[in-house]
Amino acid sequence: MLYVLQQLGYVTRQRLTKLGRGTFFLLHVLTGISDILRRPELLIRQLYSVGVLTFLIITVSGLFVGMVLGLQGYYVLSDFGAEETLGVMVATSLVRELGPVVSALLFAGRADSALTAEIGLMKATEQLSGMEMMAVDPVKRIIAPRFFAGFFSMPLLAALFSMIGVLGGQMVGVGLLGVDDGAFWSQMQAKLDFSDDILNGIIKSTVFGFVASWIALFEGYDAVPTSEGVSRATTRTVVNSAFATLGLDFILTALMFGDD
């Protein structure tokens, strides 16, 4: 009994210290913004590896998610003779939920895991300590550009995902299934609100980008500097980012779309 209590206390204390370390780490990273303003090329380079290289998977999956939504939505809606509202269905589900969430999950798999592995390996090979020896703050020099690159890329990628998805839905709905093109767009425009739907979707993806980048970089920075430690940190990044994304999505949805 005592042992179980001890274990519980140990685990709680461990988690709390980790959370505390993570928070201090985040604050440290955020102060790195001054360095980025002085050396924007560091951010550009990371925007390339975090954003541009994720571009392809986001567009391809956005296209297919939109096409599947168009197809499935058509089957259900045509039972009620409401095929014209296909545009509303596709756009609402993409802009509000699927765009931010699926792109965040893909981002966790494609970019965050790479960030963790990169930082973890830098730590394992003592590159970070080496920088400290040269009086260069590795958090500001290495980690802050990666953090802000993830933070900026996420909303852009989510917007891209939604746009490509809507176009994919339109392609299937209008092109293959014969929904009226005018009704598809006009009903969508009538039902979707700029601040309620579009902006809330962007806010969601900004939050996801912030949290996912934070988790990825902290897990890498906090990894046990062995090959096994790095691999476990990478796994934890993907799992925790996915959990954080889905959990936050529920909370944000409840807050944003509650009184509708």
């Binding site: 390339y48 541009v52 571009f55 852009l156 891209l160 939604s162 969508m188 979707l192």
Partner: peptide, 25 residues
């Protein structure tokens, strides 16, 4: 590299504008 990043950011902004103008009103 600059060009690719520029393209990426520009396409993100285009997507945002598309969503605001074409998808919502």
């Amino acid at each position: 590299l600059d060009t690719l990043v520029g393209l990426f950011v520009a396409s993100g902004i285009v997507a945002f504008l598309f969503l605001s103008m074409q998808v919502s009103n």
